Simulated scan of single mutants.
Amino acid sequence: MHAEQVTEPVDRERDRAPLRWYVRLVLRYAGRGPYLEAAGDGRLLRRLAEYGPASGVASSPAIAARVRAEAPGCPVLPLAEVPSGSFRCLVAINALGRTDDPERDRSDVREWRRVLVPGGRAVVLVPDAAGRGARLAGEVEADAGSSGRSHADWLRLFADAGLSVHREGSDGLSRGPYGRIPTWLDPRTLPARVQQRFGSLFLNPGEGENSVFVLERPG
């Protein structure tokens, strides 16, 4: 039986903080564009465009229209139509592991390598099925809508696609609630908040809900 969940007030700051963290990770570990943002809703793309040329990826015309509305002036196109070797940085937050089709994920990662310049980097966040967040949430909830891959599984997938790991870590316990304790009172969420505030990546793999990688296309 899962621990009883509590109802929390809407916390808009909690939703904004990860977006700021993603941007700061990109600036710290990948530099200033041009950026390609994969499978987002346009909010992160709009923020990246403040620091350099930024384009988005969309899987359908309807999604592309929504992304363009959120990030005016940013080109949005299917991944297969992105020119090879045209981006210094790719940002993929929750772009992988959303289906049970492993070949789709492998295909996308190979495409990421193709569109990056030699030495270009990808900042990637993916679900960690073996992480602490999944254990706290419970096995059934953790597996819902995810590929069930662990941090080690993702490492093998990226290596098979020809991408090396420049840095790896975890987002920490960033969401919640984890049982009966409200998130804003739970001391277990403090490391994630500190990591976000510093705009860095220092939590070890497995310490949160998602794995975070800075990948590099070898030169």
Rank of each mutant, 00 (worst) to 15 (best):
W112H: 04
L90S: 04
S59G: 15
E4S: 11
V109G: 02
P191F: 08
G199R: 03
A17C: 08
A92E: 01
L190P: 00
L77G: 05
L215M: 11
G133H: 02
Y51V: 05
I181P: 03
R47S: 00
R149V: 00
E139R: 15
L185K: 10
A95P: 00
P182S: 10
R121E: 05
G97V: 01
A38F: 12
V140R: 14
A161C: 12
L96P: 00
P34F: 10
A54L: 03
L77T: 07
F87W: 10
V57Y: 03
A49I: 03
G52W: 04
L90I: 08
P61F: 03
Y178I: 05
P9A: 10
P72Q: 05
G31N: 06
G148M: 12
L36P: 01
L155Q: 13
S164C: 11
W21H: 14
R47Q: 08
E81G: 02
W154T: 04
Q196T: 00
S84Q: 14
R12C: 10
E13K: 09
G219K: 08
P182D: 04
R106A: 15
V6M: 07
A49P: 00
V165F: 02
D108G: 13
A49N: 06
A3N: 13
A142G: 10
E209F: 05
A137H: 12
R68W: 00
L157C: 09
Q196W: 07
A159S: 15
S200F: 11
G131M: 00
L36E: 01
Y35M: 07
R66V: 00
E139F: 09
Q5C: 13
G169A: 09
N210A: 15
L155E: 14
C89A: 15
A62R: 14
E209P: 02
V115W: 01
E103I: 07
R12G: 11
L215W: 04
A92Y: 03
G176F: 02
G148Q: 13
F198P: 01
R180H: 12
G73M: 06
V91S: 03
D11S: 05
R104D: 13
P34D: 10
V165Y: 06
R180T: 13
S86H: 09
Y178M: 07
E139Q: 14
R113Q: 14
A64C: 07
R197I: 02
R135Q: 12
R197G: 08
R20S: 09
D153H: 06
L77S: 09
S211G: 15
G138C: 12
G120A: 06
R46E: 06
A137T: 08
G138K: 12
